[in-house]
Design a protein around this nucleic acid. Structure first.
Length: 492
RNA sequence: GGCGACGUAGCCAAGUGGUAAGGCAGGGGUCUGCAAAACCCUUAUUCACCGGUUCGAAUCCGGUCGUCGCCUCCA
């Protein structure tokens, strides 16, 4: 199969050709861990998770590197900017590394809930200071950087390709730059590689230029190439980081080594909430913990992490996505229908009789698997892939309702589709579809009630039968009378 | 101001030259003691608007209006 992807660098959809046969090296800009993750993080990391899962499904060996930014990311590009970690540490009155640890754990907790597979390597910027210093030294030696008063800056004018990714021209940048009080820079468009630590700045390291700390862009240049080589296959991240962050990452590596940097650049689009840009200052930023608990003024209810994941994947990664309660509730119902069918298949699988795979089922599997992979091959079109999964599900339901029980082999073949496409690729169909509460005990108790209700129904005692069903419904247990017997499922 | 993306049914969302996927919601039906679930049928002569190219355009080109993003911290 041939995978095509949209390369931000060339602004075209291109056939993916790995640098090394059968291997994909991908780096995605990770979070700066100074606060709980929000919907924007979810959009980005769920999108790339599906992309990486699909590469693996397609047979590639993938190395996925995603950094943890724990130093150097300033609240402001100008020199008066504060380090985000440091600022939060002061606010919470703890050590900066406690902030890093706490929010890193929070981040992975949220990503785990969203069924996002962990990166293969999660390098911390602060753990790669020597490598960053080394690259800065190389840039100084090759004339692409200069030192001023203990800080080192990248000389943008020395790298004519600056602007290749963002499509910006240096002259335009000059005009756009605001009045900058920093007089250390030769040119306002130059950016910091290393910053001198002012008195009282506690996150600092020794360097050839005195005590200081690295600039924000340098960490990604260093950590991506350290673990993936130079050049490497794919660099991903959010659209808003194209400039200056990604542009500068390229400049730093390419200026120093002339090997190029990432072959393909992939950028996910942004999140809005009720049609408006989501931002902390706008008061509409929703954290993942809030959306999972429903504890936010803009939310009318809590949403299951898988609902959030499904919602994100139901639009394309390069499209913006607008979070509204209506849209999330529609997603919730849709996913529920998908899960309902999978559960039915698995329930029947448990006590089905043997037999060949039904030809109609085999054909359905083949058709929809082909539609699914064609969609994913085309720049990871998850909405279209999900549509194939729903077409498949409709067909499965028809088979389940046909009146003749499906063989174990048929059901297993159907379930395999849900396990591979539904779970391995999209991460939407977990092994356990409903929370196990009480286990055998609850199962036994509910079955007693189902049995009593069956007796009442046999006696046409509808009042008793309906009372049992209604009271179970109140408890969150739904009964469904199917031709082959009554089944129950949890509704919450 | 510069750069870029987008505008498809009540809502969400695919489709980028060949006559509108899928999901949610709505309507009708089948099944059921009644439900629920599921299935079947149905819901845009039309893709913001105006021109143009073409045998043919939601899809290409030009313009208008609108929304959003980046240019400054943000995934």
């Amino acid at each position: 199969m041939t995978i095509k992807l949209y390369n931000s660098l060339t602004r075209k959809k291109e056939v993916f050709e790995p640098i090394e046969e059968g291997f994909v090296g991908i780096y995605v800009c990770g979070p700066t861990v100074y606060g709980h993750s929000h919907l924007g993080h979810a959009k980005s990391y769920v999108s790339f998770d599906a992309i990486i899962r699909y590469f693996r499904y397609a047979g590639y060996r993938v190395r996925y590197v995603q950094n943890i930014t724990d130093v150097g990311h300033l609240t402001d590009d100008a020199d008066e900017g504060e380090d985000k970690i440091l600022k939060q540490a002061r606010k919470e009155r703890v050590e900066p590394m406690e902030i890093v640890e706490f929010y890193t754990r929070s981040y992975f907790e949220d990503m785990d809930a969203l069924n996002v597979q962990r990166p293969d390597i999660s390098p911390h910027a602060a753990a790669h200071i020597p490598e960053q210093i080394q690259l800065i030294e190389e840039l100084l030696a090759s004339g692409h950087a200069y030192e001023k008063n203990g800080s080192v800056y990248f000389d943008v004018s020395s790298y004519p390709n600056y602007g290749q990714l963002s499509g910006r021209k240096l002259e335009e940048l000059e005009e756009g730059v605001r009045i900058n009080v920093n007089t250390d820079k030769d040119d306002p468009v130059d950016f910091a590689l290393w910053k001198k630590a002012e008195p009282g700045h506690i996150m600092k390291w020794r360097s050839p230029w005195g005590e200081g700390y690295p600039g924000w862009h340098i960490e990604c240049s260093v950590m991506s190439t350290k673990y993936l080589g130079e050049p490497f296959d794919i660099h991903g991240g959010g659209l808003e980081n194209i400039f200056p962050h990604h542009e500068s990452e390229i400049a730093q590596c390419d200026a120093a080594h002339h090997h190029g940097f990432a072959k393909y650049w992939m950028h996910n689009n942004m999140v809005t909430v009720n049609g408006m840009k989501m931002g902390k200052s706008l008061g509409n930023a929703i954290s993942l913990k809030q959306i999972f608990s429903g504890d936010h003024p803009l939310l009318t209810q809590a949403y299951d992490p898988l609902t959030v994941r499904f919602f994100i994947l139901s639009s394309h990664y390069r499209s913006p996505i607008d979070f509204t309660n209506d849209a999330l509730q529609a997603a919730e119902r849709g996913l529920k229908r998908l899960h309902g069918t999978v559960k039915l298949v698995r329930d029947q699988l448990a006590h089905a009789a043997g037999g060949d795979v039904l030809p109609a089922a085999a054909e359905l599997i083949e058709t929809q698997t082909a539609a699914f992979t064609a969609a994913m091959d085309d720049d990871f079109n998850t909405p279209k892939a999900i549509a194939a999964l729903f077409d498949f599900t409709k067909g499965v339901n028809t088979l389940l309702n046909s009146g003749t029980p499906l063989s174990k082999q048929t059901l297993a073949a159907i379930d395999a589709v849900y396990r591979t496409l539904g779970e391995d690729v999209l991460g939407l169909v977990p092994d356990q579809l409903t929370a196990e509460i009480g286990g055998d005990l609850v199962d036994g108790l509910v079955n007693i009630l189902i049995h009593l209700r069956q007796q009442a129904r046999a006696n046409k005692d509808w009042a008793t039968a309906d009372t049992i069903r209604n009271r179970l419904t109140e408890l969150g247990i739904a009964l469904e009378d199917r031709p082959d017997g009554t089944i129950w499922k949890l509704t919450r």
